[in-house]
Design a protein around this nucleic acid. Structure first.
Length: 821
RNA sequence: GCUCGGGUGGCGAAACCGGUAGACGCGAGGGACUUAAAAUCCCUUGGGCCAAAGCCCAUGCGGGUUCGAUCCCCGCCCCGAGCACCA
């Protein structure tokens, strides 16, 4: 066997020079516009979208490339299946990343971004993606953000944009607003100064109005289950009740409303707690307690949002006031504590220390009464509680008057209807999802298109006056003036009110980057059209997106915001669908030496040197082979060689087949069977993104092709070139040409498999005795149970395990025989 | 703490519906070719026992269901990601 395989030797691979083959085809694709889609004509459209990158100065790294190649394979496969595939790619270039980087190296983002984009474009083209570059975009282009501002105005028109005071993280040393991710352990990431919260008037979108729809629609979407779960958790629906606790103070009557998911425990509510920001705090403050309360409020106001939420030690202060528990009629004290959050529910809670861990802890610290109102089955109702009893599945209500003995579920219903009759409560649903704050006190983003006028208030910029262009200013650096960078440019912000003409002032905040990315997929097909954000005929043809691939780090915000914006535009009659992405799959993460790639670790891999050394085809195929696409894996240099070897062998085999005189036969029967099995397998694997096993199947076929001393037939290699094409498009084009084919392999279609040929006529039947595998028999595919038993018993090696008469025979046709004795 | 992933050879992994555990690849060992090396090609490669035929053990740990469990159920341990006082 030493000489086996001699007919395919390395001499033939000498002709395979990835660099020249790849550049040749990249040039050809560009000249022949192979990757451009006629978006207006396209009879069978397929929109294969990938999340657009932030064009960093370091360039595209292998993590980006992994995602893009994964999408590219899917797109190329769809094209081979006969669809008109549209695979656009643009740049998400606004935002704090670019701004901070520009500040750090002392350059202007407007100069930096075009450079970064050019570098990305070079890298992306070199990787051989089937991107339609005639339809690219950048969120920083006024022609693009003009329409981002338009989206804002549509939301405003619908009453879905509003302004309110909200907390931001403020660094007293840098004198600037920080994003949550710039706050590390309660301190500014740059100077380590403790961060404070400040209240600023900011723009919000009413995404919480859409909470239920955003939740309900998830059931209809073909998305990664993990992504849907993340969205469900983020929306955080909880069913419960709102209960009113009356308060009498200085002859005045008021009520404190609380939200609870456990109305069944209302008899155990022994005190109330308000968030420090609760509006009733002032009117409930007793004279004796005033200074303590003021101290406490000042203390919690100073703490930044991140730290405050990570405090788990319970602190608080008594208001001096009491409320009446509507169930027991008892007077209970009202406290203030920062463990209650103003932004959830009503900003006030009824504390049930017996059945809530946090309340238990608080009651223990301040010596407040703890009452048991739920028992485990058979437990004594007077048994003391050493910790909160939160089990509610098997809980029985106690110490709650006529509700005693009910299950928790029943008591929830009954107590809520009792409170309803008294006018003291009602069943409500609450969501964790908060409204979306889109204001950023920064420079590098689209200005929010609003003009403030002393007489007319906040007036939207007229749509015909868009875009509000972000001015090129040198001092975009946040400084101690304490305002947004644009607020230092009077010549820019002073402008006439669109309504009354009086001198007004532009909004000087810019909008969140997530707004840029919440609608970009609508723009791609219409890139180049100036009059509208998206042409309605093109939008109807191409959207919703057929396949969207991206990282799970955007599982919540980006995908939720995109869905929200799409729903709003749908409700306005502008879009004919309310969900933007029919199918979404989250790809895995590429790590390096067991760790996440990051600049600080210094383990970011830029693909350029690998592409130079091995070729784009090898790097692409390697990335897809290193692990399951939806899980990712470790980028290891050593393993690329195996994929390169495969491509070399592919080259050699096809060259031999194409040059051989007598290679036009129908192919060897066994090889052809393996080929058709491979066609079936690769065609099954690609749609479920099982790229690693698809590559393995092609390698396996390559091994079969090379086995024995023979020259491969054209019929044995031609379909293989088509199978390889999505993964390694350049070598596929070149070999397709070498085989004498006209035109791009991507217009040649996907090979059909012959299912009769693909199935073996003989199978290996596994024979077990008592469930233990004892051997296998080569038998006809359709063998009957009786014949199989007879065949097995004939084999001494098998029958020796069958001691006595079989008690039971388990026969799985075509698979396995199990004899139980 | 909660939610979602995951734990399989020296390593990356496969096993799609409960039916041969380890496909495919890397690495390693041996061999062919070569003056030599690289490249290429061939063979071996989970662990143990044995001269061999063969047998036993093995999918994080402990139980269970089943003729049969990497896969399903119960109870743990560990790793990764996200959320985190959400009442």
């Amino acid at each position: 066997m030493n000489e086996a395989g001699n007919s395919i030797r390395n001499e033939e691979t000498a002709g395979y020079d990835p660099a020249s083959v790849e550049l040749k085809w990249q040039q050809s694709w560009s000249e022949r516009r192979t990757n451009e889609t006629d978006v207006a004509q396209a009879p069978d459209p397929f929109y294969a979208l990938m999340m657009f990158p932030y064009p960093s100065a370091e360039g595209l790294h292998v993590g980006n490339l992994f995602a893009f190649v994964g999408n590219d394979i899917y797109g190329r496969f769809q094209r081979l299946q006969g669809h008109n595939v549209f695979e656009p790619l643009g740049y998400d270039a606004f935002g704090i990343h670019s701004e901070n980087y520009a500040l750090k190296i002392g350059r202007h983002p407007m100069d930096l971004i075009p450079q970064n984009i050019a570098n990305f474009r070079r890298q992306l083209e070199r990787a051989g993606l089937m991107v339609d570059w005639s339809k690219t975009l950048s969120t920083t282009d006024p022609e693009y953000y003009k329409w981002t501002q338009w989206v804002f105005l549509q939301l405003l028109k619908q009453g879905l944009a509003y302004k309110k005071q909200a907390a931001v993280n403020w660094c007293p040393s840098c004198k600037t607003v920080l994003a949550n991710e710039q706050v590390i352990g309660g301190a500014c990431e740059r100077c380590d100064t403790p961060v404070e919260q400040r209240f600023l008037s900011q723009w919000f979108f009413r995404i919480s109005d859409y909470a239920q729809r955003l939740l309900t629609n998830l059931d209809k979407l073909d998305w990664s289950e993990s992504t849907k779960t993340a969205q469900r958790n983020w929306i955080g629906r909880s069913e419960g009740a709102e209960i009113s606790f009356p308060v009498k103070r200085n002859g005045e009557e008021m009520a404190i409303r609380v939200f609870t998911t456990r109305p069944d425990t209302v008899f155990g509510a022994t005190y109330l707690v308000l968030a420090p920001e609760h509006p009733l705090v002032g009117s409930l403050t007793g004279a004796l307690h005033k200074s303590a309360i003021e101290q406490y409020l000042a203390r919690s106001a100073k703490q930044d949002v991140v730290t405050r939420k990570s405090n788990t030690d319970k602190t608080g202060v008594f208001t001096g006031s009491y409320a009446t528990n509507p169930a027991t009629g008892e007077e209970i004290p009202i406290w203030i504590s920062d463990y209650v959050l103003m932004e959830y529910g009503t900003g006030a809670i009824m504390a049930v220390p017996g059945h809530d861990e946090r309340d238990f802890e608080f009651a223990t610290v301040f010596g407040l009464p703890i009452v048991r109102v739920v028992c485990a089955q058979g437990e004594e109702p007077s048994a003391p509680l050493t910790e909160a009893f939160t089990e509610n599945e098997r809980g029985i209500i106690v110490n709650s008057g006529k509700f005693d003995g009910m299950t928790v579920a029943t008591a929830k219903r009954e107590i809520v209807s009792m409170l309803e009759r008294k006018g003291a409560g009602r069943a409500v649903v609450n969501y964790r999802l908060h409204d979306w704050c889109i204001s950023r006190q920064r420079y590098w983003g689209p200005p929010i298109p609003i003009i403030y006028c002393d007489d007319c208030g906040a007036v939207p910029v007229s749509e015909k006056d868009l875009p509000v262009v972000l001015p090129h200013v040198e001092d975009f650096k946040p400084d101690d003036s304490g305002v947004s960078p644009l607020a230092r440019h009077e010549d820019w912000y002073r402008v006439a009110c669109p309504k009354c003409g009086k001198m007004g002032r532009r909004e000087t905040d810019v909008s969140d980057t997530f707004l840029d990315s919440a609608w970009y997929f609508l723009r791609y097909p219409s890139v180049g059209i100036d009059e509208v954000p998206f042409d309605s005929a093109l939008t109807q043809k191409w959207l919703p997106v057929n396949s969207y691939i991206g990282g799970n780090e955007h599982a919540v915000l980006h995908l939720l915001y995109s869905r929200f914006v799409t729903m709003v535009l749908h409700d306005m009659g502008i879009l004919g669908f309310e969900e933007p992405f029919t199918r979404f799959r989250a790809h895995g993460l590429i790590i390096r030496n067991g760790a996440k790639m990051s600049k600080s670790r210094g383990n970011v891999v830029i693909p350029d040197q690998y592409i130079e050394k091995w070729g784009a085809d090898a790097v692409r195929t390697y990335l897809m082979f290193l692990g399951p696409f939806e899980e990712g894996g470790d980028f290891r240099d050593a393993s690329i060689s195996g994929v390169k070897r495969f491509l070399d062998r592919l080259w050699a085999s096809v060259m031999v087949a194409s040059e051989s005189e007598d290679a036009n036969g129908t192919g060897d029967h066994d090889v052809m069977r393996k080929l058709h099995q491979t066609i079936r397998k690769v065609g099954d694997d690609i749609p479920r993104l099982s790229y690693n096993t698809a590559v393995a199947a092609m390698m396996e076929y390559m091994n079969a092709l090379r086995r024995g001393e023979r020259t491969p037939a054209r019929a044995e290699v031609e379909p293989l070139v088509q199978l390889v094409a999505p993964f390694a498009p350049h070598i596929a084009e070149e070999l397709w040409e070498k085989l004498g084919k006209e035109g791009s392999v991507f217009d040649a279609g996907w090979p059909a498999f012959d299912s009769a040929l693909a199935s073996d006529e003989k199978i290996e039947l596994v024979v077990q005795v008592n469930g233990k595998t004892r051997g296998k028999l080569s038998v006809p595919r359709d063998i009957t149970q009786d014949d199989a038993v007879a065949a097995a018993m004939k084999e001494q090696t098998l029958s020796k395990f069958v001691i006595g008469a079989p008690r039971k025979i388990v026969f799985v046709p075509g698979r396995l025989l199990n004899i139980v004795v």
